[in-house]
Amino acid sequence: MRENKELLNIENLAIHYITDDGTVKAVNGINIKLNKGETLGLVGETGAGKTTTALGIMRLVPNPPGEIMSGVIEFEGRDLLKISEEEMRKIRGNKISMIFQDPMTSLNPVMTVGEQIAEVIEIHQNVSKQEAMEKAGEMLELVGIPKARLNDYPHQFSGGMKQRVIIAIALACNPQLLIADEPTTALDVTIQAQVLDLMNNLKNEFNTAMILITHDLGVVAEVCDKVAIMYAGEIVETASLEQLFENPKHPYTVGLFGSIPKLDEEVDRLKPIKGLMPDPTNLPSGCKFHPRCPYAKDICTKKEPKVTELENGHKVKCLIYEGLVDVKEVK
């Protein structure tokens, strides 16, 4: 089936935005491992640092103010943070491509969709303009849009179709890694399912690895092999899909599941996680989740938890699992 070869290995990645009003610590020492063909769901609230992580992998963090402070992003054995800008440009859109959140604003309004798809093919493959355009037509058909619309402009397409065009651009060069940043958030629910199905099918067809950024656990359940839960710029729990859904460990993850209403129970009010995401310019000491954690003890405000491996790659960053906080069961 799937070859278990490592494709991406991120170690200790930290990305900060340095502004006049203070340093925004968007990503703080995260580790991600991804094998070929595998799909990782990167889940977290708005502002958890998901998009910054994605932009970091592409080396597209806007600088200034953004800066990659430390870390290693090893892709196919090469550290992306050490190669030249020119080498990185050859990887973007070719070996790693990205789908952005808002299809309405992600296409250039003054270029035809054909030109926009053909452009990425022309850059990375040694083909003529005409061949690139032909290939662009094939890509368009692949995402379910008739070839005849190659010469139309983005404003002539609906939101769902624009997102299909963006998927066509992202997959045109058959990338090893696809980063999808909330690809369905801006779409309405019926279209969401279509776009997800399409991405899933194409991903399997081309054996592309994918990082799917989302805050929707339903989407994760549908598409992902493993999941990383992000909070305040840290990954607090990593597990396979089954492990996470059957046995969530971190109080934050448990809270996330708790906030989803269940079909078989009568619910009057939703159960949100109390409190708000901390201000990223002024993160709490110790465990970053302690101000909102129902199990927090004194020690949580002082000691930063280490990553504890529980079983088969199920990792969690919480003092409870280091045996330092006495809690019988996280529920």
């Binding site: 859109g93 992600s106 452009e119 990425v120």
Partner: peptide, 15 residues
């Protein structure tokens, strides 16, 4: 600052 400029960069277009 528009999103489509970021898209162009993500495609590997020369700066």
């Amino acid at each position: 600052r528009q999103d489509y400029i970021r898209t162009a960069r993500a495609k590997g277009v020369l700066e």
